[in-house]
Design a protein around this nucleic acid. Structure first.
Lengths: 219, 219
DNA sequence: TAGATTGTTAATCGATTAACAATC
DNA sequence: TAGATTGTTAATCGATTAACAATC
């Protein structure tokens, strides 16, 4: 997973990365019936400082009230709007293997307004079938399908060596962003945005932290 | 995914997060037959600066040679050693749903020395079966199995509301780290390390970047 | 040797935290 | 009103980049 990117409309990438955490804390607060929440409470729930919460939110506006805090429901709605999950967002999946299967049937995406409109695979045995109501089509129809369904985000879950080709096809079809699960650095024309999910990298990072450091290999 | 953590033995978390990228670039270089590689070449492949590559590597030692660069094979072996993937690392999976299935059958992990030794699920229909050679056991046997297989890392792929319980069981059984796919902030005793993979958070971040900013909700 | 490239120190840049006036 | 808590500015901290002596 890329560690850093340039700013987006002047909003640091790190700030955006923290928004879903605030969102989750707010959703919990709503569930527990809290009508208001302070920056300190949000900070505790997310493991950061109250200063950081206020600083982050101030990139988008002023949503709180001195001496009171933030109205829970209202701030949740605002963050949903900032993240763009108050409107439906259509996805297309390329690569219906095990991981693709799992993504298609993960209920959490739909709940947040993300909907797989169509999926693609090269395997003739899969083409024509559908999974969780999502039709699986031939790669040759990718351009047409993506346009027809007005897909915004392409999801790449193909093996490493097919990833760049899939990315090129998606870009050519006019998607606005790519969610990439293949362990490669995709070469894409700017200003395409990619969000990489590299499971093996994540696991290696964890292994480093867990292992008794045989290190001190300095020489 | 947590954005930042405290240093690990004086190594910034950001540095560790970049190591897999360097590793991938080196593996490519080995494949292409290059005997040596410069910090500049690594930087280009990873999308960072040569300075950063050298600075990062210098946390661990001095592996290059002035006027020459780094011996490709050798540096790859060194990074593998730093990351701890030159020795087998045993995993245990909790939660054999769609995502769990996908993780069990992903070939990339095994290649890098990560092996699922055992999996657990609460569904009686799954218990006793095995997937990709990995036996699925009852949760009640978790403690014994983890000890028997000397599992180092527990992988949580259960629904949100079962995650904390799974984590507690894994910690109780003595795992050294947790790879968490459930969308919750786990409460764990220090110094347990957790690496979170939050797919929905990642997708929301991408949505933000892709959407025409309806923002300017400043008020 | 001359050119290339490291490892490391110093300079810059950006992000986080602290502080506090404003005010509900 | 008094206490609480925001939004924002200033201070601190850490990470990235630039520079360069060392040297292969």
């Amino acid at each position: 997973m890329t560690i850093d990117k340039p700013k987006l409309d002047g909003i640091p990438y790190r700030v955006i990365k923290r928004l879903p955490g605030y969102r989750a804390a707010l959703a919990d607060a709503v569930t527990s019936g809290a009508e208001r929440v302070s920056s300190q409470q949000l900070a505790t729930a997310c493991g950061c400082t109250a200063s950081q919460v206020r600083q982050d939110l101030s990139f988008f506006g002023s949503f709180g009230q001195q001496g009171y805090g933030y109205a829970t429901q209202e701030l949740l709605a605002i963050i949903d709007h900032i993240l763009g999950i108050d409107a439906e967002c259509r996805l297309a999946l390329v690569g219906v293997g095990q991981l693709g299967h799992a993504l298609l049937s993960y209920p959490g995406f739909m709940e947040k307004g993300f909907r797989f409109a169509v999926a693609f695979d090269s395997d003739p045995k899969l083409i024509g079938r559908s999974i969780g109501g999502v039709p699986i089509c031939a790669l040759s129809s990718l351009g047409d399908q993506i346009a027809a369904h007005r897909v915004e985000i392409g999801v790449i879950a193909v093996p490493k060596n097919a990833a760049q080709e899939a990315a090129d096809a998606l870009v050519g079809a006019g998607v606005k962003g790519i969610w990439n699960f293949a362990p490669v650095q995709l070469r894409l024309p700017l200003p395409m945005t990619v969000e990489n999910v590299n499971l093996l990298d994540s696991l290696m990072t964890l292994a480093f932290q867990v292992r008794p450091r045989a290190m001190a290999l300095r020489r």
